[in-house]
């Protein structure tokens, strides 16, 4: 009789373990995920003729701290310029935003495991290696930035340069002096932790 009881206990323990085993990786994966749909991305082109600046507040990004995976999706049409004509030309002539509505980036944090251990204590300078797709062209890119955990949110900064020519963005001779060969891009995100319920949504 006591033997049977013991076995019962063990069985229930096994079942509990199984259930936990099923649940825990999912939970860990979900909690380590941070996401935003209102990230700020701006770019700046400086030339002798004029400075061009635009900003976008609709950048979507997700960081999976469990795996070190990073993904960005930026709607090109949402870049706001001070000059409306520039904005029209940007969409119509340069980025062809109807044909290529989004710029995307998928990448992997380098030295992820070590960095993420220290992330809870201090801001970390990180490097992300991945593929940047824009205007239908994909290029390998390594971007340096910082990650910081602040009040349960993941704060991300990054600054890097892009050459329009690398992404077959054709600039006519007449305005070649107006647009920089290398355009600087600034990223500023505040990502919220993703709750399991949100992840489960298809």
């Amino acid at each position: 009789m006591p033997k049977l009881l013991l076995r019962g206990k063990r069985l229930s323990g096994l079942l509990l373990g199984l259930l936990l085993g099923l649940a825990s990786p999912n939970r860990a994966w979900a909690q380590s995920k941070y996401m935003t749909r209102a990230g700020h991305i701006s770019f700046f082109s400086a030339s002798i003729m004029e400075d061009i600046e635009a900003r976008n507040d609709k950048a979507a990004a997700v960081f999976d701290l469990g795996t070190g995976q990073v993904a960005f999706s930026v709607p090109i049409h949402e870049f706001q310029f001070k000059r409306t004509l520039m904005q029209e030309h940007f969409n119509e002539n340069y980025m062809e935003s109807e044909k290529y509505p989004k710029a995307t980036f998928t990448g992997q944090l380098l030295n992820a495991a070590q960095l993420l251990k220290q992330l809870h204590t201090a801001t970390q300078t990180v490097e992300v290696e991945g593929n940047l797709t824009m205007h239908g062209v994909t290029h390998k890119a390594i971007v340096t930035g910082t990650l910081q955990l602040r009040d349960g949110q993941l704060v991300v900064f990054a600054y890097f340069n892009i050459a329009p020519a690398d992404f077959s963005i054709d600039i006519p001779l007449l305005v070649r002096e107006h647009i920089a060969k290398s355009v600087s891009v600034r990223i500023n995100l505040t990502c919220d932790a993703v709750t399991p319920a949100l992840v489960a949504q298809p």
Binding site: P25, W29, A60, T67, T104, T106, Q201
Partner: peptide, 21 residues
């Protein structure tokens, strides 16, 4: 379970993001 969810996360991070947006 751990392996499938991790693989799912890696392959589908961008897809999920785009679907959500």
């Amino acid at each position: 379970v751990g392996a499938t969810s991790a693989a799912h996360a890696q392959a589908d991070l961008l897809g999920q993001l785009e679907q959500d947006t």
